[in-house]
Design a protein around this nucleic acid. Structure first.
Lengths: 338, 338
DNA sequence: ACATTGATTGTTATCGATAACATAAGAATT
DNA sequence: AATTCTTATGTTATCGATAACAATCAATGT
């Protein structure tokens, strides 16, 4: 077992300076085509692998973009991350992905750890963070983008939407269909700040319609699973049989609720309407299909990626000119509330 | 806007050498408690953030573990990755996550890119790779772990299961229930090698039972979505109404098939049985519940993490002693085949 | 009192690439 | 022919931490 080859080894074998080898690996460097080919051939022979860490260290450009999402196991955040990654890749940027388990204190730890790797930009999910997180990010002097939310006091840039407003639309739709007794099914903590915002949007909308916003079913810690959605629906059917519609914090819990109705012989939407949030694949495939809100996760990721690329290229907005991009979530009416 | 602080800045302000600052940040280094506290306080005042890249460069230990999965948007792989990450974190290792879109050529590109970051180990999904991928990994001289498969000629270590054998069990279960005309619904390319193995397992098992293995419904490129599962089921019901059971390449397509049956008024399992693969959440929540195979994704990730930690600590098996851990997938019988 | 030990701190060299500047040789221009 | 320009390549210093070794000093043992 031997030391892995370095540029020096390649340079010696090719009888050129290390600098020439370095140039041979760059795009626009001035090396004669003949020399470049020879160097690349010798590098391959030696099994030389470029050392990004050394380059990173010298140039102080890591090529990392830190991305923190609440959970790996969530199709919405995966879509955002994949779209982001797709945009960053051609710019030579690499995503450093972490997840917070819907906890802003875990988020803080990850931020602290990631900053040590000197990312060139950082993308957060949501607009609520610990004070220390905000302080660390301010000091880091790199572009910060908050997504999936529209915080009043952003750290830097925002690409998101109002969770409350989206649920407001949902309530409007259900009320317009003649339903008055609506319930909201979601988490019982504020760990998932987007979920909490949706609940707030529900309460505000109900009040605005002159309806009672008291039917709040609290399930547990986020994320609320399909199973928890089913269990909560079971309780709702037992304790509040008069309910005419349920808005669930996500399509996953909504689907659980839907299947619980099927098991109990409760007809959807005749006996009760159900709505979700997120426009997950399942919402369009289940039977009946789910009324939901499409927050355009991929667009969030794409726009975030484009913003980062332009900021790092230097042709974007200045550092004292925070961007605020509002993505318009779309109400998608399915069979579950027709 | 000023240069970010370095250890040197901290050292000067604390009136000690840089080395003492370095020690103050380490766990077991010999620095008086008083000095350490003073240094940490000054570091915080200056907004100093440890530079992992510099440390990495000096020590040649990056703390990265490269992980490549087929898709970000898949709960099974997310579970494996999360479990892996959970085990690695306390050991100071960080996951560098990439996804291949179920394509071994994209995988090759990612491997090449990741190796430049000098990961200390690499985890791949599946046992089929390009020749160049294999060559690059052999040269890299780091632990390589293939997962979710049991390749005959592994690159290094394996933690997985036989996809073919698991489907064999599924066929056995369905045949035992008296069904003879079984179909397999999956992708039509070998891009998803695990999916292809499942199909092979289906064919082999059917032949072993003396049944016709010809009912193979090919859907398209992997991953096969819920919607594609529904569409394929629609075709199957139209063209092969005599089919008694369908094994789908994953729970997602199986769920699509299930809902298609509900729409068409076809009773599951009375008219046709359906089975999936993966034990995704949905399999236990949908109605009826899905018969499926639980490949224990989290266990795969956990075992991979433990193996990596012990290998890097040096108290694991030697480098010429590849580990082969076989995870036993579990048949989970649901209402869809009862 | 002197040698020894252990705890704490300092000094020097180094990891592998690249920016900045320097140089050499031939081509183009006057 | 002399000068300028261009292309291809080389030299030197450097990014920020840490390993290895050295040095200092107080405490301990004999």
């Amino acid at each position: 077992m031997q030391r892995t080859a370095t540029m020096k080894d390649v340079a010696q074998k090719a009888d050129v300076s290390v600098m020439t080898v370095s140039r041979a690996f760059k795009q626009h460097a001035s090396v004669s085509e003949e020399t470049r080919k020879r160097i690349l051939r010798i590098a391959e022979e030696l099994g030389y692998v470029f050392d990004s860490n050394a380059a990173t260290f010298r140039t102080q450009r890591t090529g990392f973009v830190a991305v923190i999402i609440p959970s790996l196991n969530n199709a919405n955040f995966a879509d955002t991350t994949a779209a982001l990654s797709t945009v960053l890749k051609p710019a030579g940027l690499q995503v450093l992905l972490g997840y917070s388990n819907y906890d802003i204190h875990e988020e803080e730890e990850i931020v602290e750890q990631f900053l040590r790797r000197r990312p060139e930009a950082i993308v957060l999910t949501g607009g609520r963070h610990t004070g220390r997180t905000r302080e660390l990010l301010r000091r880091a002097q790199i572009p910060v983008i908050e997504t999936w939310d529209l915080p009043a006091d952003p750290i830097g840039h925002i690409i998101g939407f109002s969770n409350a407003a989206a649920v407001h639309d949902l309530v409007g739709h259900l009320v317009a269909s003649g339903r008055k007794r609506l319930a909201f099914l979601g988490g019982d903590t504020n760990g998932d700040t987007r979920g909490a915002d949706r609940r707030l949007g529900f309460v505000a909308a109900m009040q605005q319609h002159g309806l009672s916003p008291d039917l709040l079913i609290n399930v547990g810690d986020p994320p609320i699973s399909m199973r928890e959605g089913a269990e909560a629906m079971s309780r709702l059917l037992r304790d509040h049989a008069e309910t005419e519609a349920v808005i669930c914090v996500s399509d996953l819990s909504a689907f659980g609720a839907l299947t619980e109705c099927a098991r109990k012989g409760v007809r959807v939407p005749e006996d009760i309407a159900i709505a979700g949030f997120g426009a997950y694949d399942i919402s369009a495939v289940c039977y009946p299909t789910l009324t939901t809100i499409d927050p355009h996760p991929a667009e969030i990721g794409q726009r975030a990626g484009e913003l980062i690329v332009s900021l790092l290229r230097g042709d974007g907005p200045g550092e004292n000119d925070p961007i605020r991009i509002e993505i318009g979530p779309r109400l998608s009416v399915g069979g579950s509330s027709a």
